[in-house]
Amino acid sequence: MTTLTHPKYGAIWFTLVVLLGISLLGPLTGSTAFVLLLAFGIAVVKAGMVAAWFMHLAVERRLIWFLMITALALMAVLFFGVAPDVMRDQGQNWGALAAGKN
């Protein structure tokens, strides 16, 4: 059973749309780093707002938060475990180095 206080959904929606607009303005600045930072920063904020207020995570039991965080953390583990291999396909000549020392 939930006791739920409904926030002002319209205002949240409006904020989300404004954020979308800002992320679209990013490319006009011309700085790639800034564009990426802005776009992904805004994506995280938007996703957080949708999760917190539309999905009611803000008032949901703490357990569900842990669940979501755990799933995301697992994906971080996957990313960083795979990155050293998949992102270095040029080869580091491990075999050649070892052979040279012999």
């Binding site: 697992l74 583990v77 475990g81 050293p84 291999d85 580091q92």
Partner: peptide, 18 residues
């Protein structure tokens, strides 16, 4: 168990540091 998977790939050419 989420941190051990690459021991199946030691000879697959994965990064030796990993």
């Amino acid at each position: 168990s989420f941190f051990v998977w690459a021991h199946h790939q030691f000879v697959a050419g994965i990064d030796p540091r990993m």
